[in-house]
Amino acid sequence: MDRVVTLLAPGGIEQLQVSEQTPQDPGATEIRIRHDAVGMNFLDIYHRRGLYPLPAYPAVLGVEGSGVVEAVGREVTDLKAGDRVVYAGAPVGAYAATRLLPAARAIRLPDSVPSQVAAASMLKGLTAYMLLTKTYRIEPGTTVLVHAAAGGLGSILVPWAKHLGATVIGTVSSEEKAELAHAYGADHLIVGRDADVVGAVKTVTDNRGVDVAYDGIGGGMLAKSIRAVRPLGVVATIGQAGGPIPPVSVDELRPGKWLTHPSIMAYITDTASYLAAAEAVVAMLASGIAATIAREYALEEAALAQQFLEEGRAAGSLILVP
């Protein structure tokens, strides 16, 4: 019997229940994967709270993982038992020792990429690819603002932006996290939850503002991000770890700033987009640009891990190990 973590209903971590399940036989176009590791994301928190409702309850959370193919459906020809794979995106259901997965979502892992690193990095890497190449194409000389630059996404977004030639301004909540963000390659850091983000950005950019800001904090930070962007620049709001976002007046976007709310889950629903992005991410992982794993938890400790993530204490990514 395998362990699985089930969300009984939207709510707090007390709604997460550990139970046993029998490994299932894959359908014609499915595989069964035995997880080496399961990646954790703030999206899991949104799903648990019901901010992004799931189709039905009880449900199994988790949108990324890595491991070994254990069984394949009769129509699956490009994968076999024993292959190492990673995946991200829908269908949700990674908080389990084994799971069924559409074979089209499975991406082969090169031997040089450890399973734990892949599980911690895949969705964040896909998000970074979307933000850096589709939301606003980063080129040499681009100046970017990355909030939570020492977080799970920041650990990939910052070095990948630097790889593309950008100047990176990062925000962090503490000196400890500033050291991490600096190690990731951030050129300038704004430290402290109450720091004058707009003033610091204006100083660094000679009052011009950044070309693009990536804001996963939400709350009152989005208004600051908008003010920190140059005219005709872009603000991408990608989460609200710091709380709900108050209404934004159209006047805040003067003179001609662009506000966008890209969704990585929507972007990678398209199979061609997913495969192209995944190929780029795996190449980045093989080159050494990957998420930093802050902590590992046993699968049975999923509730404890979610609490730690939700409190904003994680400097890096968290993974569950079945």
Rank of each mutant, 00 (worst) to 15 (best):
P10H: 07
V204R: 04
A28Q: 08
G151Q: 12
H261K: 11
I45N: 12
G11A: 01
L318D: 09
S66P: 13
R313S: 15
L131T: 06
E301H: 15
P231N: 07
G220M: 00
D2Y: 08
L222C: 02
S249M: 03
E279K: 15
K134T: 14
A200T: 09
V86E: 01
V321F: 00
E179T: 14
G316Q: 11
V281G: 08
R208V: 12
I107E: 07
A276I: 01
R48C: 05
A28C: 03
A228I: 02
L304C: 01
D36Q: 15
R3T: 15
A56D: 12
L145Q: 02
F308K: 10
G89S: 02
E176H: 08
L132K: 00
D251Q: 14
A294D: 15
E296R: 13
T143G: 03
Q17L: 14
G73V: 09
K124P: 05
E64F: 06
V282F: 02
E301Q: 15
D211T: 06
T22V: 14
G243V: 03
G12S: 15
D215F: 12
S155N: 11
A71W: 04
A195E: 09
G27S: 14
M221V: 08
L51Q: 13
L222F: 04
L101I: 04
L304H: 04
V146E: 11
A161L: 04
P255Q: 03
A150L: 03
D44A: 10
G220I: 00
P58V: 05
A181G: 10
A277V: 00
R3I: 14
L157N: 08
L16E: 11
L101T: 04
Q17M: 11
V321Q: 09
A302C: 05
L259N: 01
G220E: 11
V4H: 00
E175G: 09
T269R: 14
P159Y: 11
V210P: 09
E252T: 05
P244L: 06
I268N: 11
G256V: 02
A276R: 09
E296W: 01
S174N: 09
Q240S: 10
P26L: 10
K124R: 13
G11R: 01
M122F: 14
G93N: 13
D187Q: 07
M265A: 11
